[in-house]
Write a protein that binds this DNA or RNA. Structure first.
Lengths: 200, 200, 200, 200
DNA sequence: CAGTAATCGAGACGGTACGTCCCGTCTTTAT
DNA sequence: ATAAAGACGGGACGTACCGTCTCGATTACTG
């Protein structure tokens, strides 16, 4: 079961260079940030990483996959341990909003999303990437329910959609900036709605 | 009305063919739907429309603009005249969700969004397209406030984000289908939140 | 029959640029001469010709075919009108030898020859190229027979092999230079042999 | 004789495997024959030989040198001891023609020749290979002169060119087959020419 | 018999040319 | 002036191969 994973006798041949991989992914993020998706040429990425195109294509079959891998290394959201549920949610969402607006993720996520419909493998790769960013919200909500701050019986999945949706849509689809007051308003409304639904 | 458009002396030379324009926009939508954005080549569109590339580029400066023009012909959402605010909102959003999931818009919108960051002209063109789809929600909300179904002082813009965001995000980012129960849950929660906020 | 060839109504669309074609073929010969076959990159040829790779590949499917086309423009051999048969043959062969040794043809012909075995289309293209260079020898021999300088009944094809073979082999296979005395010796031997065969 | 090769103390470390070397050279000839020079990848040769690329490149610096080494193992031509000079020459040349037409040598020689111009080391390696195949002709001619079958004062080198040239050219450049009657005609003509030159 | 040094298979690596594809423009003739 | 046809310059993509390198595993000689 886990034996398959352990390198029984170390793979033969020259091992892949972790340094190269890191340099390539870093270069990808940098160029994405500097030039955008279209102008971040695979050749330019190779050049900046001090690697060769072969090394890139040996690891990732297409440019899209490379970009996904680069973003997969982006930091997870960190839910604060203290504060009431609204403050925790706001702080967490703000991290996400900042990441979307101040790194190339904001520019690239739509492209990945667009490509996913045509590329099932990419869909598989993108799924956990997105899901992990949402997970902290679920944990906060679960804890709040346990503390009695929110009523039991809440659909966590739905709540995540209600919280993330407006932010993502405003950034991606509307092309507007998201600031703390907006996030607070969203969180406040969603929490209010959740409590009202339980009370009815 | 149309007199304003028509100059003193008609433009000289052969007039542009409206038939060509329609054929091109139809072919664009069809190919987008069949092959996705990337594989919907301008050349292929011209072929299917029985037009030539020059005819296309004479009207729209880039492929992106062509695609936007094609979508600009999509029907507006139609807010039902009767029912309480929740029912009206649900029905309207359902139209939108169906349109996103059963036409190529769902696949193409992210690409347009992605390209917009790099292309201000496209941004200008995309803005009203998106805004018009949201507008009916604003009208429903305004009327509900006037009827006293919702408290006054509601931020209409925010409410639109709260309603559309979860749906768009679920379809585009999560890659899941949106059905009527989900829409009802969103609408119910948002309305509950709006009322709770007023009550507090 | 010949109607198929005549441009009844001129091919539609923008015609191919003869200037581009000439520039490309010239650049090919120049680069071949400067850098050899391997280093005469298609990209470099396009650059020097002020053309694009697309334009090159639209006309010739591979680099080999491009190179053949370039050589197909090389000048034909010119048989001198006066002199006895040996002098005429020597002069003609010397033209060929000079062309082989002072232009890139000498470096490229072997590659074409090598590729031919694997590429029937290339074979078809190379055949007349080679044959035309030999033809003047046949004419000289035929005229000499008519004048009585050589006996009738000579196998012209064989005689061409006997004359060209030693020169080509010395240049291509042995990698040595061919000078006038060598050519004279070959011609003298072949003519002597042809006369001796008739006399026996 | 072989003592000169063997140093005072044998080289240290694991000795090179003769079996590998043989397998590599055999695989080279086979693949050359099956696929031609270009498609006979070093990697494919290694695979078929059950060797690794390092083992190949440790012995031969480039692919060209490997190919030459493979051909260097081809059998020398064997001059028959009996018969008149024409019969001996014909028999010897026929061996060569058969070897050129029924082994990959015919396909590869032009490539080696082409590459030689750009690679002096390869030139050094190719020279003896070619020369050895011609040598038997020289011996036959020398013996014939000694026997009085051919006049003294013949330029042996030239005679070799006259004999081999037409055959090589017909096979390589013209892409035609060479049969015994053709060889006989060449030999007969050359011998006739040599005798005629002496008589004049 | 343990140590050392060169070889072996495997396969990753940098580099570079190839040939394909598409975009947006330009140049024809025909309407 | 616009239309269809299609060539053009430009430039990214992904593939393939070369010759080098880095691994762990052999295989002989050597102290």
């Amino acid at each position: 079961m886990n034996a398959a994973q352990q390198p029984a006798s170390r793979a033969r041949g020259r091992p892949r260079s972790q340094a190269s991989e890191d340099a390539i992914l870093d270069a990808t993020l940098e160029l994405l940030s500097d030039c955008g998706y279209r102008d971040a040429t695979v050749e330019a990425i190779a050049l900046r990483a001090g690697a060769s195109k072969s090394t890139i294509y040996r690891r990732w079959p297409t440019k899209e996959n490379l970009v996904i891998a680069a973003f997969a290394r982006s930091p997870l959201l960190h839910a604060p341990a203290r504060g009431d549920v609204c403050a925790q949610l706001s702080a967490t969402i703000e991290q996400f909003a900042r990441y979307m607006q101040e790194t190339p993720l904001g520019a690239v996520l739509p492209v990945l999303v667009a490509e996913r419909g045509r590329n099932p493998a990419l869909d598989q790769a993108l799924q956990p990437l997105v899901r992990q960013r949402r997970e902290p919200l679920g944990e906060i909500l679960t804890a709040a329910i346990a503390r009695g701050e929110l009523p039991a019986g809440i659909d966590i999945e739905l709540a995540q959609d209600l919280l993330m949706g407006p932010v993502l849509q405003r950034i991606m689809v509307m092309g507007k900036r998201v600031d703390r007051p907006f996030i607070d308003a969203v969180v406040s409304n969603v929490c209010g709605g959740l409590r009202a639904a339980a009370g009815s």
